[in-house]
Nucleic acid binder design. Structure first.
Length: 477
RNA sequence: GGCGGGGUAGCCAAGUGGUAAGGCAGGGGACUGCAAAUCCCCCAUCACGGGUUCGAUUCCCGUCCCCGCCUCCA
């Protein structure tokens, strides 16, 4: 079995063949740090986090690079609005981004390069293009000559002659051709600027990724990722800059995630329908939120809808519930992994098919169903079934937590903490309830159970006695 | 206008040239004092019209509808 990835450049799924056997070098476009992360950022983050985790699970040594754009027009604007230095804004939101990614269960990149830390690399790349006459400087700006790069438009499948010219923020009249884009922007009064051979200024947006990806991952690295909305012009320009300058391949595979939509509309700041990641995390929790992200294949649009999040929360609860029950029976009976193997294989087959997360989650569901079946047998004293439960529970954490990052163990641990705090209180109430039940005073007994239920404590009467636990944190919506 | 993605049960969502995974919701059953949790069963002919084929939801053509990008954006 081989992992296949849909490559935007090829417009088809291609078997993943890394540049170097057993290695995988990934570059994913990161945020422009000028505001709080929203659930659209979260989707991209989770998609590529899962890709990374899956590659590692498959045995690849992964190097994961995600940049931070810490100098940009929007950062300058925001700083001006708030009366702050742009660097203060950038630092503040970089820290916020990292905290939020952490809360989302997204593993930190191996390298998180900052644009402002790579000005020399960018300038060197620009110079290389100037030397080859593929770029030109005008009044302190440097532009890329789009028509001089034959491959331009290959990624986004558009012909140069069809393109409507977008107006750059830099005065378009400086350009030879409206299609040309800025790699270096001359400083304007009051803006941050760095020295360069063309005068003080700052880098254009696209140049940083070309320069930083090549610096940290080398030429022809394996996978370049980002949102579908970055295909044009950002990624098109990244390719143009690198390949025009060096004449070799920039990246081998281009993977793009689909957009998050609000109802039928795309979520965007201009429409004003943005849901921040912090909000979503506190309302739903990491596990359910990630399950929602994984409920659609990564290239298709995903609609934000509280009913969908509720579904995801129910699924999360089901997984956690099995794990909790499995822990009770599977102690020292050994581990039988044979039952898990078929589900692990189904999971891998799904993920191999262009990261088919919905199918992979379906495999986890079937694993859990098998686990619950074994659990029933184990609770009746079937030792072989206990070993199967242990194997299946192990596979659940391996796939669900390890690869998908669903925070099942974490949810269990969180609940356990609350359970410790509530134990004395709950036990005392359950004693009263037991007394009431003994007298067949079910009204009182059920009243106590309802009371506990309202507080998130689930009470179960089992053949071997009462059992209670704290359910997943209650969710909004 | 150019480029691209998509229309599968009440909802979400996989998938395949040979009569369609999984989940949520719903209905029925087992278990329970009742519940909870769990298990079992039921619940679609795949937008529409043609064509190719022994056979199409899956391939081709056309129609309708939805969405994204073409400007900052994950």
């Amino acid at each position: 079995m081989t992992l296949s990835l849909y490559d935007t450049l090829a417009r088809e799924q291609r078997p993943f063949e890394p540049r170097e056997e057993g290695m995988a070098a990934l570059y994913v476009c990161g945020p422009t740090v000028q505001g709080d992360a929203h659930i659209g950022h979260g989707r991209a983050a989770v998609v590529f986090d899962v890709l990374r985790r899956y590659l590692e699970w498959r045995g690849y040594a992964v190097t994961f690079v995600q940049n931070v754009t810490d100098i940009d027009d929007k950062i300058i604007l925001r700083a001006r609005r708030e009366g702050l230095e742009p660097a203060v804004v950038a630092t503040r939101y970089t820290r916020a981004w990292n905290r939020t990614m952490d809360a989302l269960g997204v593993r930190a990149p191996d390298v998180q390069p900052l644009a402002t830390g790579h000005l020399l690399e960018m300038q060197a790349l620009i110079q290389l293009l100037l030397d080859q006459d593929k770029a030109y400087a005008v009044e302190g700006n440097v532009f890329f000559r789009v028509r001089r790069f034959a491959g331009y438009g290959r990624l986004s499948r558009r012909r140069v002659d069809d393109m409507q010219q977008g107006e750059d923020i830099v005065d378009a009249s400086d350009k030879e051709d409206p299609l040309d884009f800025a790699m270096w922007k001359a400083a304007k009064p009051g803006e941050p600027a760095w020295p360069s051979p063309w005068g003080p200024g700052r880098p254009g947006w696209h140049i940083e990724c070309s320069a930083m990806a090549a610096k940290h991952l080398g030429h022809g690295f394996d996978i370049h990722g980002g949102g579908l909305d970055l295909v044009f012009p950002h990624h098109e320009n990244e390719i143009a800059q690198h390949e025009a300058a060096h004449g070799d391949t920039f990246a081998r595979y281009w993977v793009h995630n689909g957009m998050v939509q609000m109802g039928a509309e795309k979520m965007s700041k201009s429409v004003g329908n943005v849901v921040s990641l912090e909000e979503a995390l506190s309302a739903w929790g990491v596990g359910p939120l990630r399950l929602w992200y994984l409920s659609a294949q990564h290239r298709t649009p995903l609609t934000f809808d509280t009913a969908r999040l509720r579904d995801a929360a129910a699924v999360h609860q089901r997984f956690v519930t099995f794990l909790r029950a499995a822990r009770r029976v599977a102690s020292d009976v050994g581990v039988d992994d044979t039952a898990a193997a078929v589900h692990r294989a189904a999971f891998a087959a799904a993920m191999d098919a262009d990261l088919n997360a919905p199918a992979a989650v379906a495999a986890v569901h079937e694993l859990v169903t098998a686990g619950n079946e074994a659990l029933t047998a184990a609770e009746r004293g079937d030792v072989a079934a206990s070993a199967r439960v242990a194997g299946l529970a192990g596979a659940l954490t391996e796939l669900g937590d390890g690869v998908l990052g669903l925070h099942l163990e974490a949810a269990l641990a969180d609940a356990a903490g609350v359970e410790r705090q509530l134990a004395a209180l709950v036990d005392s109430l359950l004693e009263q309830r037991a007394a009431a039940r003994a007298e067949r005073d079910f009204a009182t007994a059920d009243g106590i159970r309802d009371q506990l239920g309202a507080a998130g404590v689930v009470v179960e009467d089992r053949p071997d006695g009462v059992r209670w636990y704290v359910a997943d944190a209650p969710t909004a919506g």
